Simulated assay, not measured.
Amino acid sequence: MNKDYLLEVNNLQVTFKTNNTEVHAVRGVNFQLKEKETLAIVGESGSGKSVTAQSIIKLISEPPGKINNGSIFYKGEDLLTKPERYFSSIRGKEISMIFQDPMSSLNPTLKIGRQIAETIIRHEKVNKETAYKRTIELLKLVGIPNPEKRIDQYPYEFSGGMRQRVMIAIALSCNPKILIADEPTTALDVTIQAQIIELLNDLQQKLNMSTIIITHDLGVVANMAHRVVVMYGGKVAETGTVDEIFYQPKHPYTWGLLSSIPKLDSKEKKLIAIDGSPPNLANPPKGCPFAPRCPYAMKVCIEQSPGIVSSSDTQKTACWLLDEQAPITDTPETARIEG
């Protein structure tokens, strides 16, 4: 455990058993989170982003899920060695999570005020009156108007953006050290997405939290994160600062993600998609998981998993193209973003 990090995930491996099939959802993931830092975990659906995040606070249902290997250090202690009652005490208090769909995450039969206050009463050991005062303060903090009235309303009386703000209020109710936001803007229109991003940025600075953003949207990453973890096929393909990932990407999968971003100054009318489909993690490839879709793949990419190559103190990439014996391959024009 490195004392420079608030959270450190090492060689995390998670599987799910369904009937006679074992799905290797997360395969040796490593990353770190510093205090007051925003880390983005990026990748398409099925890359292992959400499973990795849920593993941090042991929200993986066992069975069918199982954390097979690895360590998750928080404040110097390995969370994976702790009993379930320990996680009940830190979920929401030390490490909190905003889930993807606010409508399905909120209880439709309970008033908003009660859903927020319950978390405060449970972890802060305060009376109902104090909890409701704190609830009104939280609703104000996340930008919900007339909170004194809103606490007595049900989730269906809130718009999608307002429900997401309620979810953020619940997650912040006990002043967590780490906030995990799983696709916090996915179901929202572009205008509301921008408001939620701005809100999370403001709250991160006001409350001095560390934040993990799970997303497939590189636009969210550009506006929020300090560092980025790019995942594919249950593995980490590349890590680096936002500037390194956007302006000096090294992995072909990162190139593909960047090439698919609409550019205002581009004359191309058609977006460039990544051909092919994600790997079947019930039978994961022995080589690089991106090799079947990679236009630069070599024989070794199919046969052997690449090692980690450091391009700087902060940028690390798992790709055979960075091997000294590989042919020189430059970042394609479509993936280049001018600084």
Rank of each mutant, 00 (worst) to 15 (best):
I120T: 12
E22H: 00
N146S: 11
G219Q: 06
L79T: 06
T109C: 13
S55K: 04
T18G: 07
P332K: 00
S310F: 00
T119F: 10
D265R: 08
L200K: 13
I192Y: 06
A131H: 01
R336C: 08
T186P: 02
P262D: 07
L322K: 08
G48K: 04
V190R: 03
H251Y: 04
Y132G: 06
Y232E: 15
L258K: 13
N223G: 13
S89M: 14
E268I: 00
T130L: 11
V242W: 05
A297I: 04
N107T: 09
L179E: 10
I116W: 03
F31V: 05
L321N: 11
A273S: 15
N30Q: 01
A326H: 05
E148H: 06
E268K: 12
E268T: 10
R27L: 05
S310W: 01
E94I: 07
E303I: 13
M224C: 12
W320I: 03
R163L: 12
T119Y: 07
C301N: 06
H226L: 03
H24A: 03
G65C: 04
E35D: 15
S311C: 09
N30G: 00
S50Y: 01
S312C: 04
N107P: 05
I57Q: 00
E238D: 11
K111D: 02
T211S: 11
T239W: 00
N280R: 10
C174K: 11
I245L: 10
K36G: 04
P279C: 14
A318C: 02
D152A: 03
I95F: 12
N10F: 01
K235Q: 09
E303K: 04
A117N: 02
M298W: 14
A169L: 07
D101T: 13
P306K: 06
I337A: 05
L39I: 13
D152G: 03
S50L: 04
N201H: 11
I41T: 09
E62V: 09
L139Y: 06
L33F: 07
V220I: 12
K36S: 05
E8I: 12
Y74C: 00
Y296N: 14
I95C: 07
K263R: 15
F246S: 04
D101K: 14
I72H: 11
Y247R: 02
P249S: 08
L322G: 04
H216D: 04
G233I: 07
P176Q: 15
L80I: 03
K133A: 07
L271Q: 15
K316V: 14
N19H: 07
K125Q: 08
V300Q: 10
I197F: 02
L271E: 14
C301P: 06
T314M: 13
E35A: 13
F16K: 08
K149E: 07
T314L: 11
V236D: 13
I112R: 14
S260L: 13
P176T: 12
P327R: 09
N201D: 03
R91T: 09
K140I: 03
G65A: 07
L257H: 00
I308Q: 02
V14P: 03
D243G: 01
E137R: 11
Q32F: 05
V229T: 15
Q304H: 02
I192V: 08
R293T: 03
L199M: 01
N68C: 06
L321C: 02
K49E: 05
D202K: 12
S61G: 07
N146K: 15
L12A: 13
P147I: 02
L258Q: 06
